[in-house]
Design a protein around this nucleic acid. Structure first.
Lengths: 403, 403
DNA sequence: TCGGGCAACGCAAGCGGTTGCGCTCAACGG
DNA sequence: CCGTTGAGCGCAACCGCTTGCGTTGCCCGA
């Protein structure tokens, strides 16, 4: 019966409801014998305290809100998984909120829907605007962030700048000098903080090494495989090809790998690629990348949040999370620097398959021809009408026609 | 102020709390003028009803529980995304539960933690045991399932049998006769219903066409990339190679593609591969697969659940979801049936890279050598100590040494 | 003019717990 | 032997909102 109340238990045990309450939550003031009778009565009746009544009486909701801009992307799913385990372990409820677009986001924070509803809020990688921050402050519950620093809120962050710098430094150490960046699109509506930071790390490494930087070496796209493809296509349309590419996230790196593969550029022979995140597919592709344990971050921050939510008065803290460079198979020393220096800019029609060398045929082997026509090399990226022309011919390093 | 109660609003508006309550929820019995004053007072004070008090008073929780065996896997993340949108749209809270392993699962259902906590439950692809079912029944709230049929519960299902059959029929239509299956591991602790159904579809198609079936043509692994790799490795150790492989899910197909690639078998030239699900990466690999719209299923079932939770008395229903075969680039007619028939079983050492033909070198280009040593070809699958020996040499079709 | 009917609104009793406070009574020290 | 103490337990007042029912006052028909 789902209707058993504390009174039923009290009646069965022959005590008052207050004793049942005290006993069941171990507050003392109840003799061992009584406690035993109460416990017996309680689980004979299958009694469960009513969360609503409990919350009303105590004022604590026993609930944590987790708000995420994406549910399906690897990073967020992983984070959610880590947080969920800890939150539930602590006996709290996890209220999930997905903030899909800017309008939802606006409504969400201004509606005050969280008010009186949660004991704590966990927000993933959203760079909050001032009104959003103050809306959260007015909730008067601890707020924890992932990947973003806000005064008064706790957070867990990896060092994106340093980590990106490490990744690029790896390329530099290998001897690369023209290192391109595949970056997140700054027009991204959700204002993530990650892309600019990884961008900064990229620039820092190159700057410190005295290597060239500039728009010629940078291309942008969404933080997805498709975004990575588009950005790489842009790169391939530039006057001079890089010998290495740093992608701000693994998904973009996958996109890069695909495009490079299709045009017959070999990885890492012709171009090295390094990603960021260590997405589960990264090992599949043998992608060199910067690994971060996202689930662990979720656990750490959720644990902190739970603590703050329960023991009120704890101060907000800034937690760190480590990263490490994982070197796999997509990075290597550039083939031949001297040769590379005065490479003949021999242009060649990309889609003239008849002239394809073994490398191109290898690409073809991997991915023969897409039946759904979804091919970035054939379909110029929407916003850039000149993409197609620029791609008709590309500069490619000469030589190494086959082993 | 997060402490504003209905009395504050009533006081400001100069009415009684009951009028505020009636007015705010549009129950009539309040004059237009009063309603206006109340509304003004309410949002001047930033008033929000206390969910706890509301729930206690009304008995309805305004909450839906969503329970998932995985959070990070594509299918479940997608489903969650779809359901979340609908649930929140309906103004309900979404309580997320992750049932990681069997023990959690047991504790979860026996603890009655859902009791008095939710107005409805949405469960993804768990084949419930009898005690679990009755535990859910005793909750006395509508229960909806995804991918599983239970008497008295609603559900949304694709036709796994027919869809799998379609996928295999596609291979048959192309002329394939030796069609292997990469199947989910039956020892999977969570008892999913999908693998056996897709298995049945596979058998049905083959049976109807009079084509061979049997353990020689089947291999098992986890429903993951790694599982697909392991299963494919098993397949490659068999006496006779299939010309086509049906993987019960796309992740497994990805694993198959990788292994085939590494050993130099070309797709679809040497082996056709078809998956199931249309995972976002499927188009990346050009994988022929059976597409299903998982987010849509989440939306549909959540909508149904919300309806049932609100208008009590609605009957449970069985909803369907469609699938469609998406033909991409991993399936083609078998190269040469006649030739195939009396192929010389020329064994060759897999890792003797010196003898590698162009195809193998192409594989090498794609995935040169894993730095982390996580290579199914080098590491025999745990449970099968004889895997390594069997893999030392494999039977491989002769001919087609190069493009 | 007067009674009936019906909006509009307030009263108060819950909903199912928690918790401060007061009572009872056995144990114990002086 | 008596006063004090404190453990064990019940009483009742909330927590904030909903809702059935009673009251008020106005409009209308007879």
């Amino acid at each position: 019966m789902s209707k058993t109340t504390i009174k039923d238990v009290a009646g069965l045990a022959g005590v008052s409801p207050s004793s049942v309450s005290r006993s069941l939550r171990g507050m003392g003031g109840v003799s061992a014998g009584t406690t035993e009778r109460i416990r017996a009565a309680a689980d004979q009746l299958g009694y469960t305290v009513s969360p609503a009544a409990y919350r009303l009486a105590t004022g604590r909701t026993g609930t944590i809100a987790v708000v995420m801009p994406y549910l399906t992307r690897w990073f967020f799913a992983e984070l959610l998984g880590g947080a969920e385990a800890v939150i539930r372990q602590a006996g709290l409820d996890l209220l999930l909120y997905h903030i899909g677009d800017l309008e939802m986001r606006k409504r969400y924070f201004s509606s005050g829907i969280l008010r009186k509803r949660v004991d704590g809020v966990l927000i993933a990688t959203l760079a909050l605007t001032e009104p959003e921050v103050s809306a959260l402050r007015s909730l008067d519950v601890p707020v924890c962030m992932v990947g973003t620093l806000v005064e008064g809120f706790s957070s867990v962050c990896i060092d994106d700048v340093a980590s990106a710098r490490t990744a690029v430094q790896h390329l530099i150490n290998l001897g690369h000098e023209r290192i391109a960046l595949i970056a997140g699109d700054p027009r991204e509506p959700m204002h993530f903080t990650v892309p600019p930071q990884r961008h900064a790390g990229y620039l820092a490494a190159l700057g410190a090494a005295g290597l060239p930087t500039g728009p010629e070496l940078e291309a942008q796209g969404a933080f997805t495989v498709e975004g990575g493809e588009e950005a790489t296509v842009q790169l391939l349309g530039r006057a001079e090809l890089p010998t290495a590419i740093f992608a701000e996230c693994d998904e973009m790196a996958f996109g890069a790998l695909r495009v490079l593969d299709r045009v017959g550029l070999r990885v890492p022979d012709d171009v090295s690629v390094v990603g960021f995140d260590d997405h589960p597919m990264a090992s599949y592709f043998g992608l060199t990348t910067v690994a971060q344990d996202v689930a662990e971050q979720g656990r750490v921050i959720a644990d902190h949040l739970v603590r703050r939510a329960q023991a009120n008065g704890t101060k907000p803290a800034r937690l760190g999370a480590s990263t490490r460079l994982v070197i796999r198979a997509t990075t290597a020393a550039p083939r031949n620097k001297a040769h590379n220096a005065h490479n003949a800019h021999k242009s060649r029609t990309l889609r003239a398959t008849g002239t394809a060398g073994a490398a191109l045929s290898a690409a073809r082997l991997r991915r023969p021809a897409l039946a759904n026509g979804h091919d970035p090399l054939e379909r110029p990226p929407g916003p850039r009408p000149d993409g197609h022309e620029r791609l008709a011919t590309i500069k490619k390093k000469k030589g190494e026609t086959q082993q």
